[in-house]
Design a protein around this nucleic acid. Structure first.
Lengths: 243, 243
DNA sequence: TCGATAATTGACGGATAGTCAAGTCTAAAC
DNA sequence: GTTTAGACTTGACTATCCGTCAATTATCGA
């Protein structure tokens, strides 16, 4: 007797609700405050039912990460559709990253947890593989734009250099800036608390150093950023307070 | 009746041993495998005695982080003594970061754990403040060199730009590269597994973009790196397999 | 040797992850 | 409408681990 379609739908909806509830607990009370009993209580289901969906607490965190990971991948893919020259399009991807960090600040924390060996292996491999696939999609968007730039002659790749290296550099600048922001909040450092101006400038310095044309001295990338916010991410920009 | 000097020394030595044992467990079995009972068993002391030294399990992790954090700060401060022009000196700091990541790969994981709000607040604030102070020292080394560069006219700081921003950029490139390396290991991505060549090049691109003279086209920074390894970090380079 | 204080112990309380036997519900067959 | 097989749900239970503290042992000056 296979489960009916209606029941299947109910189960899928319940799984989404569990992830929502768990996310709320994670954001409000941190990893320690996230317990399976609390999830079950808030869901008004028994713990056993929660374990029908997830094989462990870490698996729940992996599911949270999968959800936001896919959102990020979609934001990146939308960013790549921005109309403009290749470096402007990469700028739009940067906008996507900004918006993602603003709207889903929990993602970084969940990622750190899932990445720890001992924790990762307790999550369902299907879920961790999905998370990895989402990251690949994001990385692929960046390297794709870079390959377009190479084909269009807007950037030259030196011997021994690769588009993956440059994408890694940009990725590092963004991840590092937001990591510093979180750290700065804890340290109550004013000059680190808003990383955006410095981040945007650093990314321009890096791409200028790579010789990606037009250089930041030849084009107004702040205007491009505004256009990307307006044309591609009007809703997200409003929700993030950047509109 | 104050504790005798001998006893105090024994206690201090025992605390170091606890941190060592805990580090071994963390590296071998991860955060989940690190338990107070195992520490006590391996130490051949009771759990109560361990709690004489540390107020919680998270406090032990904070102590691990303190130990490697101070090592890093000392490496950075030694790097700043490198004889050369300002950008070469910053390169030596990069060498220090490379060596640190190679020799103390657990640091990143411990840092992620301690940084999580719910975990941090269970550690002794003295210890977390010490960790923060070590990071400040590292950051201060970088900004100090940058200020020297400004004073010497080797770099110009544009309006709205700060030396802290540039230091953040470099810091991000390094942290991000090693984070990608760990991630790449998990994903079994060959092209991400050795981040060093790409990292060195990316750092040069970034500093070239900042206009820090002499540019990478005007000076052989790989030779400077070799010299820093030889002159400042011969022991560490050997231990890290970079000599 | 004795007594006071410091140091150590490990059993215990409380909390939480994860299991599973027992019970409930669903829907198809008659 | 009734039956019934099997899917679904439950919550008590086990195991594990953190952190405590009353009891015990060690130390050292008098």
């Amino acid at each position: 007797m296979p489960t009916s379609a209606r029941k299947q739908r109910e189960i899928a909806e319940r799984e989404e609700r569990i992830v929502d509830v768990a996310l709320g607990l994670l954001v409000e009370q941190g990893y320690i405050g996230l317990t399976m009993d609390k999830i079950a209580a808030e869901m008004e289901y028994s713990k056993g039912t929660i374990y029908q969906h997830f094989k462990s607490k870490e698996d729940v965190v992996a599911a949270i990460l999968s959800a936001s990971g896919e959102i990020r991948a979609k934001l990146f893919e939308r960013a790549a559709t921005f109309e403009g020259h290749s470096r402007e399009r990469m700028g739009a991807v940067g906008v996507a990253a900004e918006l993602f960090y603003a709207l889903y600040p929990h993602h970084e924390q969940a990622e750190n947890l899932v990445r720890a060996h001992s924790i990762r292996e307790k999550a369902d491999s299907k879920r961790t593989e999905f998370c990895a696939a989402c990251e690949f999609r994001c990385f692929g968007v960046a390297t794709g734009i870079l390959r377009d730039a190479v084909a269009g002659g807007e950037i030259e790749i030196a011997p021994g250099q690769t588009v993956e290296q440059i994408a890694s550099g940009l990725w590092s600048l963004y991840v590092g800036a937001f990591k510093l922001r979180d750290h700065g909040r804890f340290l109550e450092d004013e000059y680190l608390s808003d990383p955006l101006p410095g981040l945007l400038r650093n990314a321009q310095m890096f791409l200028d150093g790579c010789g990606w044309k037009p250089l930041s001295t030849e084009h107004d990338y702040l205007a491009s950023r505004e256009r990307a916010l307006r044309e591609i991410f009007p809703d997200e920009a409003r929700r993030a307070g950047l509109a």
